[in-house]
């Protein structure tokens, strides 16, 4: 009796040890996977902080001569990325304006008709869309908007391309969120004689607001850093451009331009740092909303 108890004790200890080792291994690996992010941040801050001052936010990108002179005199490069910030705000804003209503309505349709044939087709297409390379969406924007509508590169074309890109995340998050909402909620409204469309818009949708908003913000953060589709659509612009039928700059486009100009390479770091922080903030906001605004049924 006694010995067998001891044996099983020893066995148990071995198992507990294994368990512990396993847990530590997982923690270590998880830590390892977050190392790149910190390295990137560290690198960007180290190389980019000098460039970030007030004029960074309100001055347009410097031309190569200004930059060359500054570099020669060992000064920081003058100018900022205001044309990129404004461009990104306009392009991403318009893309959201297109994609949010379409995506939410589409997601609502999928949640309501989860077994329908047409819904199956739509869901398949949305999944496919998720996998379309962004440069291809740029080509689409070029064919649909640049050539026939704005007769030249334009921020509108960039918005169209990016709106297609953010659509899947909105559609799927709306669908998943609405599917989780108990059907009794809808019944409660309908049993009060509330018409179907009002039930959906004023009862069901608000109950899923946190999940839907999370999807929207993740969609925005996904497109905010996109470069390839904008090269074929918004093209870039040295000045601040608010006309949506005209070419426009964007923060990621500026990073690419700085990379291509030997005199401006020092600007890469600050512009990248700003973009990265912007996207990190969006992600954190999404997380906070998912937590804070969660509706309890």
């Amino acid at each position: 009796m006694n010995t067998s108890a001891q044996i099983s004790n020893a066995k148990l200890n071995r198992r507990l040890l294994k368990d512990k080792l396993f847990t530590y291994a997982i923690i270590f690996l998880a830590f390892l996977s977050s190392v790149p992010l910190f390295l990137i941040l560290f690198e960007l801050i180290k190389k980019g902080y000098k460039q970030i001052n007030i004029s960074f936010f309100y001055k347009v990108a410097p031309d190569t001569m200004e930059a060359m002179v500054a570099v020669k005199n060992n000064e920081i490069i003058p100018g900022g990325i205001a044309n990129g910030i404004v461009g990104t705000l306009i392009i991403v804003g318009m893309a959201s304006l297109i994609a949010i209503p379409v995506g939410i309505i589409c997601g609502m349709y999928l949640a309501e008709n989860s077994k329908g044939k047409f819904a199956g087709v739509v869901r398949f297409i949305v999944d496919m869309l998720q996998g379309v390379p962004s440069i291809v969406l740029g080509v689409i924007g070029y064919i649909w908007v640049v050539k026939p509508i704005t007769a030249g590169f334009s921020s509108l074309a960039g918005s169209v391309a990016l709106s297609i890109m953010m659509l899947p995340s909105i559609v799927r998050s709306t669908e998943e969120t609405l599917k989780m909402i108990p059907g009794t909620l809808k019944e409660a409204a309908l049993s009060l004689g509330v018409p179907y469309h009002k039930t959906m818009l004023r009862v069901v949708l608000p109950s899923g607001i946190s999940g839907i908003l999370t999807g929207v913000i993740l969609g925005i953060s996904r497109i905010a850093g996109e470069t390839a589709p904008l090269m074929l659509t918004a093209l870039g612009s040295a000045a601040i451009s608010t006309d949506i039928t005209e070419p426009s700059s964007a923060i990621p486009l500026l990073v690419w331009e700085f990379y291509n100009d030997p005199n401006l390479v020092d600007m890469i770091w600050s512009a990248s740092l700003f973009l990265l922080i912007l996207i990190l903030c969006l992600n954190l906001t999404a997380k906070a909303i998912a937590k804070r605004w969660k509706v309890q049924y």
Partner: peptide, 11 residues
């Protein structure tokens, strides 16, 4: 109508 599970509007 009143249902099996209480279903007040959560928002």
């Amino acid at each position: 109508m009143v249902f099996q599970r209480p279903n007040p509007f959560p928002t």
